[in-house]
Simulated assay, not measured.
Amino acid sequence: MTEVVEITEAASFQIKEMMRHNEEEDSYLRVAVKGGGCSGLTYGMGFEKEKTDEDDRYEQFGIPILIAKEDAPILQGTVVDYKQSLMGGGFTIENPNAIASCGCGTSFRTAKKEGTPENC
């Protein structure tokens, strides 16, 4: 299967560290889209033990990744990175399908899907 989301090497190091720290080495990384946020859609990332028939699975840097088939068109071409600064570190998500986003950096909408905006 074609990789929908690209995990950078920096992000993979952080994800693997989180998996070790949280004892999630045998889990999948789920990258998802949910309704909400200022612009209508938000990103989600977390660990899950089970894959469903509605999920596509692939692997990058030894990390098994799950994406729901319905989220794949929205996330196609998205890059997940990890940036470190003097103020700390955090994941960044760059989605070429997002046509609008808000200042929080996690809320967005696409030309084909607006989601359900909430007040920020």
Results as ranks from 00 to 15, higher is better:
Glu54Val: 13
Asn119Phe: 07
Gly44Asp: 05
Val4Glu: 10
Thr8Met: 10
Pro64Val: 02
Ile99Glu: 11
Gly35Ala: 12
Asp71Trp: 05
Ser39Glu: 13
Tyr58Gly: 00
Thr92Trp: 01
Ala68Tyr: 03
Gly62Met: 03
Tyr28Ile: 12
Leu86Glu: 06
Pro64Asn: 10
Gly62Phe: 01
Arg109Thr: 13
Ala10Gln: 14
Glu50Ser: 09
Asp56Lys: 13
Glu118Gln: 15
Met18Asp: 14
Gly88Asp: 00
Ala72Met: 01
Cys104Ala: 13
Gly89Gln: 00
Ala32Gln: 11
Gly46His: 10
Glu9Leu: 00
Thr78Leu: 14
Lys34Pro: 03
Ser101Pro: 09
Asp55Phe: 06
Ala100Ser: 07
Phe91Leu: 09
Pro117Tyr: 04
Thr2Asn: 06
Leu75Ser: 08
Val4Gly: 02
Tyr58Glu: 00
Thr110Pro: 14
Asn119Glu: 15
Cys102Trp: 14
Gly77Ile: 05
Cys104Leu: 09
Ala11Pro: 12
Ile74Trp: 00
Lys49Ser: 14
Cys120Phe: 09
Gly36Thr: 02
Ile7Lys: 05
Thr92Glu: 10
Gly35Gln: 13
Asp26Asn: 15
Arg109Cys: 12
Glu23Phe: 06
Ile93Glu: 06
Thr8Arg: 12
Val80Gly: 15
Gly35Ile: 05
Ala32Cys: 11
Cys104Glu: 07
Phe13Trp: 09
Asn119Gly: 08
Gly44Asn: 03
Lys83His: 07
Pro117Trp: 02
Phe108Ser: 09
Cys104Ile: 12
Thr78Trp: 07
Thr110Trp: 12
Leu29Gly: 07
Ala72Phe: 02
Gly77Asn: 08
Leu86Arg: 07
Asn97Glu: 03
Ala32Leu: 10
Val80Leu: 15
Met87Asp: 12
Leu29Val: 11
Arg57Pro: 03
Ile15Met: 02
Ile67Lys: 03
Gly88Val: 03
Gly89Phe: 01
His21Thr: 14
Glu23Ser: 13
Ser101Asn: 10
Glu54Asn: 07
Pro117His: 04
Ile65Met: 04
Asp81Cys: 09
Thr8Leu: 11
Leu75Lys: 09
Thr110Asn: 03
Phe47Tyr: 06
Ile93Val: 13
Gln76Gly: 03
Arg20Trp: 02
Glu25Ser: 13
Thr42Asp: 07
Asp81Arg: 09
Leu75Met: 10
Pro73Ser: 05
Ala111Val: 08
Ser39Tyr: 06
Val5Phe: 00
Gly46Ser: 04
Phe91Cys: 08
Asn95Tyr: 04
Glu3Phe: 00
Lys34Cys: 01
Asp71Thr: 02
Phe61Arg: 09
